[in-house]
């Protein structure tokens, strides 16, 4: 499987993503933000970082990059797109995912391990995550508080688009386990078609036991499993 890893000015997790995907035996190539095509990519990862210095709003400028037009077309055709941290912010700004990421309620930049409950296992990004397995994945962000108005939140719940929620080590979704004030403890969501997802935690930084957790692999493995099944069909 071929992954395209996008690079914007001030992306800084592009190498982590490339490494994580290659570790799983897949191909991964960088795609520069000025590119107008994704080549023959089977999936796209928009990595974390501080694209365009987070000026104006996180992701607000990156979303107008030429490559995002290609991502839009790719997503419209059903291609798998995963946005991590700044990548999640870019997808929300681009309107590929609903809602927005705003300043953490604490006003602090939070850089720590968190626990995630997988709230829906029937998405291309979660299908390889064992039921009841609490993921341990790090976060590193100042603007990761998920916000959407009530009708949007209700729609997310109705269509089971909430994929991951911050929880405690036992899997309980509590206020204390919420590192940034996200509504409904949302750590990650997908679109209604379920082929575009974003999350604030970094699976790319949790893909080897050496790094403290290999739980992040499950998300990339889910994408690969979904892609292989689609191709066989």
């Amino acid at each position: 499987m071929r992954f395209a890893i996008l690079q914007f000015p001030a992306s800084n997790c592009d190498q982590d993503c490339l490494h994580a995907v290659r570790l799983l035996g897949h191909q991964a190539d960088y795609v520069w933000h000025k590119a107008t095509s994704l080549g023959d990519a089977d999936a796209v990862v928009i990595p974390g970082g501080f694209s365009y210095g987070d000026y104006l709003r996180c992701g607000a400028i990156a979303r107008f990059s030429p490559v995002m037009q290609a991502v839009q077309r790719f997503a419209d055709e059903g291609g798998l797109v995963l946005g991590i941290c700044n990548g999640f912010q870019i997808l929300c700004e681009a309107g590929l995912l609903p809602g927005a990421l705003i300043r953490n309620r604490s006003l602090q930049f939070r850089c720590e391990q968190v626990f995630l409950k997988t709230a829906a296992h029937d998405a291309p990004f979660t299908e390889a995550i064992p039921p009841d397995h609490v993921l341990r994945i790090p976060i590193a962000h100042g603007e990761g508080c998920y916000f959407a108005d009530e009708p949007t939140l209700a729609a997310l719940e109705t269509h089971r688009q909430i994929l991951w929620q911050y929880c405690d080590a036992g899997g309980a979704v509590t206020e204390a386990a919420n590192p940034n004030g996200s509504l409904r403890n949302i750590a990650g969501i997908c679109n209604q078609a379920r082929n575009v997802a974003g999350l604030m935690p970094h699976p790319d930084r949790a893909s080897e036991t050496l790094l403290g957790s290999a739980d992040g692999r499950r998300i990339f493995e889910s994408m690969a499993q979904c892609w292989a099944r689609r191709r066989a069909a």
């Binding site: 705003i102 300043r103 953490n104 309620r105 604490s106 006003l107 508080c145 916000f147 108005d149 004030g181």
Partner: peptide, 14 residues
């Protein structure tokens, strides 16, 4: 400005 319904922790801190 942030919308009324949006939490503004910076405003609260100020």
């Amino acid at each position: 400005t942030p919308k009324r319904a949006v939490l503004d922790p910076q405003g609260k801190t100020v």
